[in-house]
Design a protein around this nucleic acid. Sequence first.
DNA 1: CTGTTAGCGCGTTCAC
DNA 2: GTGAACGCGCTAACAG
Lengths: 359, 359
Amino acid sequence: MCIFVIFGKTARTPIMLADKGKVTIYDVARRAGVAISTVSRVLNNSPDVSDRTRIRVERAIEDLNYRPDRTAKSLAQQERLMLAVALPSFTSPFHNELLKGIRSAIRKTQLDLLLSDLGSKLRENSLFSFLQRGAVGGLLLAGVQIDERIATELKALQSPVVLIGGQWPAFDGFMWDETAGAQQAVSHLVGLGHRRIGMIRIQRDSRIQVLRITGYQAALREAGIDFDPTLIVSGETEKHAGFSEEAGFEAMNKLLASHPDITAVFASSDVQAIGAWAAITESGRSVPDDIALVGYDDIKTSRYIGLSSIDQNMQTIGERATELLLSRLSGANKEPARTTIIQPVLRVRRSSGTRRTLS
Amino acid sequence: MCIFVIFGKTARTPIMLADKGKVTIYDVARRAGVAISTVSRVLNNSPDVSDRTRIRVERAIEDLNYRPDRTAKSLAQQERLMLAVALPSFTSPFHNELLKGIRSAIRKTQLDLLLSDLGSKLRENSLFSFLQRGAVGGLLLAGVQIDERIATELKALQSPVVLIGGQWPAFDGFMWDETAGAQQAVSHLVGLGHRRIGMIRIQRDSRIQVLRITGYQAALREAGIDFDPTLIVSGETEKHAGFSEEAGFEAMNKLLASHPDITAVFASSDVQAIGAWAAITESGRSVPDDIALVGYDDIKTSRYIGLSSIDQNMQTIGERATELLLSRLSGANKEPARTTIIQPVLRVRRSSGTRRTLS
DNA sequence: CTGTTAGCGCGTTCAC
DNA sequence: GTGAACGCGCTAACAG
């Protein structure tokens, strides 16, 4: 800290700024013997400053260890230098990948990243309080089912919004073809010779869930396999709306008990698949030799335990979504909002053996 | 959108706000026929408002779909409603756990979370540009080695700082007893009967690395085992400063080639351990039956592939660090800055078999 | 209880 | 080139 003499006419700032208190642009101006507008010009690299004054100002900045206040800057310029991102969780590998993509797109800019995880239960409240904070340049919203109320709130933001895994007429969005993904997964299992294929679902009757079951049925129909509703089970654990290892574990145990003859399972999420894997292993069988397993969503762990998965390319989507948001933000993109459908890709982690009966 | 009549004396706002343009507190005041301060009172739940006017104002807010501007509020109140968190990566399971803890502590407050991952290579630049943004209430800095320059920047923030995994006289910090952790890991292996114990290190000669090697040596000494420097190897891949699966994979392969008689390995990080696991598995041996593996840092995958690990309780630390920051922020905590040492804990994932020679 | 007014720190015309 | 003055949207005394 340093003490310095105050001279010149004090514009509007109270004189006492002694040793503590924030260093503002006024202090710098005084120290350099110029007006604040000049300091501002230096800060913003305006060419209209003589080298001599520029150096003087820079010295003053250095001496005072001054840093411009982003809040004030943001208010004065009427532009928000912040991108808000809201997703259900930071930690799920699924959303983690998404975050990675978002970050890599943001890194190229000067924008800040305001992050919020909505949680599973209190989703509504967290979402609303987050949105009502306002003062963001743009918003990326992932994994949220949009309704009239949310849409209103989104519009109140008065800034561009891009949805990931959701859709609404007024907003840009990215969605996956869930049906095609599920069908791909189950067809893969069918192709390996399996005919008794279980499915682990989530509890809630979400739109996504319906679509995946449709895909599951389509694959069976295509192969001429009868649909057996009892092969579709869910766990009891409600954590994360059933997208949890626990739920997968419980569901798999149910399946093993009620249908000991199944040789393959399609799980609705990566974490469920992990739980199912644990259940299978504990029962003394192995993946994929005894029971083939395909899970939705990519996860690193998969490759260590040999399960195939439907990859949604989260990272790529995160990047694309952010880039779209940025283009909206800069005003370069004036096209009407549009929802883009992404085709999930099946990744075979380890060549599963063909159908074998449990002995 | 709605058109509304403008009446009363227009204070300072230009009249034309037509259909577009931001809805401000002035618009609400006009609409409700009150002064802006009254609107402000309603917004901030001041008791000094009659129910009648409160309702009028609330109606106006509703009608105009008004949302207060946090930037302006923040500037006016001279308090930053934002916590900045900077860590090397979002995606590493290690930091992910940290983030989880931070979030759970923040959730209890009204604060926003400004997040930045520093990356591994461009660390310096990202860190500085992030810090120079300023305008944050407090900062949580993880995994950064503090030096004079960084400390200066940190001080310029003029807001409380808590370091995680770093230390500096002027700032609060949390550190792990790396030596004790490594010693614990290796002692565990010794206790299982192993005597040829390899160590996978990172490339850089960071302080942490030195401490861990010290712990490794201490455990050997305690057991009367001679220290063989060639048992400490690192991978070639420089990604993430050697904290990567690739590096672990390469290092493990080196070890298997140069010391086919080793029966246990201590890896410097969870991801390295995963890489090592892959190398061991590919060589036809298994973990932990043929080669026992202990990795630093907790990771979920561990339990699926049976490796023990040194758990640093990242989530708990994240929470404690954030709470400390919050207490500093509120001014409740006036104690001098202090660095807290955390004792890592060994978690045995699956009871490793005792030493077996490779046949 | 309610209105007036002066800042918060900075950007940005306009004159000079 | 440089400076004075106003405004960004809101809070916080201080009057009334």
